[in-house]
Computed example of a mutant assay.
Amino acid sequence: MSSVFGALRRRLLTPPVSETTMEVRGFHVKNAEAKKRLEYIGEVFLRGYAYAVEAGSPAEAQERLETVPRDVRGFAYEGAGMGAVVHDALPGHGGRLQGLLAGQGRHHDYMIYVGIGWAMARLPKPLWPDISATDPLLRWLALDGYGFHQAYFRTDAYVRNPHLQHPFRWRGGHNHYTANAIDQGIGRALWFVGGTDPDVVSGLIRAYPEHRHGDLYAGAGLACAYAGGAGEDELAHFAEGAGEHRWALAQGAAFATEARIKAGTVIDHTHLAARVVCGTTAEKASQVCRDTRPQAPDVHGAFPAYEKWRRDIAAQLASSSLVSKGADQ
């Protein structure tokens, strides 16, 4: 059971739920249903964060995380990833992140790595986790999480002033690529800032310099598939509106599909998003991610293996779509 000190950690370190409301954030409200969905996701994220901070052990944190409803459990693990890093940064603490990834969290590793980036956005750089000890491929998701946090909580600087520069360096490799990975997280946040409204989200993306659109659409694709909040016609409209970045959008959605399938948290929306955005079934979109995943990430190439993985997924989905259309004609 969590100790008195654990309860105190939770009280002192957990952000208030009010920070995730649409009114406080100033985000677009499409309708009451979408608003409720996005705010619920924020609440669950903070619940997972609190579980990781308060629990007396990784096993206790895991036990609590596994009680979260299956459709939103991944968001709880994302919050737990952030909480575990914050916990480990405290004097005399450690092992929470490692323990989380070694248990049931290994099925939610995509989300936990994103949560690491949330913690990086909140902690002084000397307290960041040792990134060299993490997965060389998935560690890029930490920058996705960092970008999401900045766009979500520093919306004026990262979204409403899209031409502002935000220099960033880390020790994860390929610093020339960090802006791309962060943009993927910003794109994911835009799905929340835009209230799951495809027209609003696309408008936000178009406000950024054109060379950033592909990464932003990829992030938005992940969010529209994982978080949901849009119907079939809206998703089809979003995919069509992405234009030349159609398959970057699909790549992000495929990542979301693979994350849910791996974690056993597939919902009806997973199948819908895979069919409409990826142009295939959820199972096939997930398989594309697994089949193209690099076995030995090359940290010395011109760009990280993570980017090659993303490009290969997009190319495979585009190729499969062309084959499918040809067969239908």
Rank of each mutant, 00 (worst) to 15 (best):
L65K: 07
A76I: 04
R206Q: 15
I116K: 06
A239S: 14
I116G: 03
E258M: 11
G95H: 05
T280P: 09
E54R: 13
S320L: 13
A157G: 04
P15M: 09
R139H: 09
A50E: 11
S286F: 14
V68G: 07
E19T: 07
L222T: 01
V72Q: 11
P126H: 05
A296W: 11
D197H: 09
E210V: 14
Y49N: 02
V200R: 15
I313M: 03
I131T: 02
H28L: 07
A274K: 08
A315E: 14
G214H: 14
I112W: 12
I112A: 10
R290W: 10
R11C: 08
V86W: 09
F5V: 02
R212F: 07
A189L: 02
H271M: 10
Y40A: 13
L317E: 07
V24P: 00
R290Q: 15
S320I: 00
G194W: 06
Y110V: 00
P58M: 06
L138V: 01
R70H: 13
D88F: 10
Y158P: 01
M22T: 03
D215N: 12
Y306T: 01
R212K: 10
R154P: 01
F27G: 06
F192T: 02
R122K: 04
R246S: 15
E39C: 03
L100A: 04
D197C: 08
R169C: 07
H271R: 15
R122Q: 13
Y158L: 06
P162E: 06
G203W: 08
Y40F: 06
H93P: 00
H300T: 14
G56S: 13
L190N: 00
G172K: 11
I267R: 06
Q98E: 15
Y152R: 08
S286L: 07
G241M: 15
E210G: 05
D298K: 01
V4L: 14
H149M: 05
V323F: 11
R139D: 05
T155E: 03
L235T: 00
A253N: 04
R290M: 14
P304T: 02
V193R: 09
R154Q: 13
V266H: 10
P126C: 07
V17C: 04
V299C: 06
G228R: 01
L216H: 10
N161F: 02
A59V: 05
S324T: 10
G99A: 07
L137N: 03
F5N: 10
F5T: 10
L123H: 02
G99K: 04
D233T: 07
L101V: 01
P91V: 05
A314V: 01
L143E: 05
H300V: 02
E66P: 01
A242W: 06
R310W: 11
G326F: 09
G185N: 01
D156S: 08
A239P: 04
E234A: 12
A55H: 07
R169I: 12
A282M: 13
D71W: 08
S18F: 15
A55C: 04
S202W: 10
R212C: 09
E54V: 02
V159N: 06
R311P: 00
H28K: 11
T178G: 12
L222G: 02
A248L: 13
K308Q: 10
A32Q: 08
Y146F: 14
R139F: 04
A302H: 08
A250H: 06
K125C: 03
V72S: 02
L8R: 06
A7H: 08
A133L: 13
